[in-house]
């Protein structure tokens, strides 16, 4: 087993009286791509935000490279900088160009010089094939391009892991592919990823491991062929049948 980058132990989350997560254990190893599938409302996005340190769990522990983030009272901002996050809605800073969106964290969080930050931001935009769009504002980009800038913004920080929260959910079919292709390229580059998605083909071809969540619990876990082709639980079977249309 490789080095564990991010781990959740016994994660529970309540919103008021509603329990969204009912004790989740999850580990993501370096260089691996893990995909979470499951019906909407199953707690996938909440789990991702908790692992991304964007909200605290009600109970349980989040460990980043073996260190318990909340118990050890680590500086959240410092660790967030090492955990990339790509949101469901393209959440670009609307007053900044594509280049400046990518550059902001490099300048003010990683404290790179203006020249270094610019060079690094351009290099990252090239990876997502958007170097020609660097001076465009978010409103001048398509949804897919915006998501790819969002990916570049996360990637440029040289994170230990990138979390994707249904990055194609708000996109048309054609735009979905360009984002999925970009994510596929990242996986090939060995970037550690945890991806919530409904794109089964991505899960099947790219994931090292798939998790099926329902009702705040992990019901299935394992390599794609096992979870997708031969699920143990009835709920996973129903979900997959509907998703795959078979």
């Amino acid at each position: 087993m490789g080095e564990v980058v991010l781990e959740g132990r016994g994660i529970k989350k309540w919103y008021g009286k509603l329990q969204v997560l009912k004790g989740i254990d999850i580990k993501i190893e370096k260089g691996k791509t893990k995909v979470i599938i499951g019906p909407s409302g199953s707690g996938k996005s909440t789990l991702l935000r908790i692992l991304g340190l964007l909200e605290p769990p009600t109970e349980g522990n989040v460990l980043f490279k073996g260190r318990d983030v909340y118990a050890e009272k680590l500086d959240l901002n410092k660790i967030r900088a090492k955990i990339g996050f790509v949101f469901q809605e393209p959440s670009l800073f609307r007053h900044l160009t594509a280049l400046d969106n990518v550059k902001l964290g490099l300048r003010h969080v990683l404290k790179l010089s203006e020249d270094e930050a610019r060079r690094k931001a351009l290099e990252t935009l090239r990876i997502v094939h958007l170097e020609g769009w660097k001076d465009h504002y978010p409103a001048q980009l398509s949804g897919g391009q915006q998501q790819r800038v969002g990916i570049a913004r996360a990637l440029a920080m040289d994170p230990e892991i990138i979390l994707f929260d249904e990055p194609t959910a708000s996109l048309d079919i054609e735009l979905t592919w360009e984002v999925i292709d970009t994510m596929r390229e990242l996986a090939e580059r060995g970037i550690t990823m945890l991806v919530v998605t409904h794109e089964i083909s991505f899960a099947k071809e790219v994931a090292d491991e798939i998790i099926f969540m329902d009702d705040g619990m992990i019901l299935e876990e394992g390599p794609p062929e096992k979870v997708l082709m031969n699920p143990k639980s009835e709920r996973a079977r129903v979900f997959l049948r509907r998703l795959l249309g078979v």
């Binding site: 964007l54 901002n77 959440s91 670009l92 800073f93 003010h108 969080v109 920080m157």
Partner: peptide, 23 residues
């Protein structure tokens, strides 16, 4: 300035003060 941008700012490690100043 929508909440999603504030969360995005947090996700790259900007502090609250930096988020106010730059976003």
């Amino acid at each position: 300035v929508f909440k999603d941008q504030l969360m995005a700012a947090a996700s790259i490690g900007l502090t609250f003060r930096q988020t106010l100043r730059y976003i």
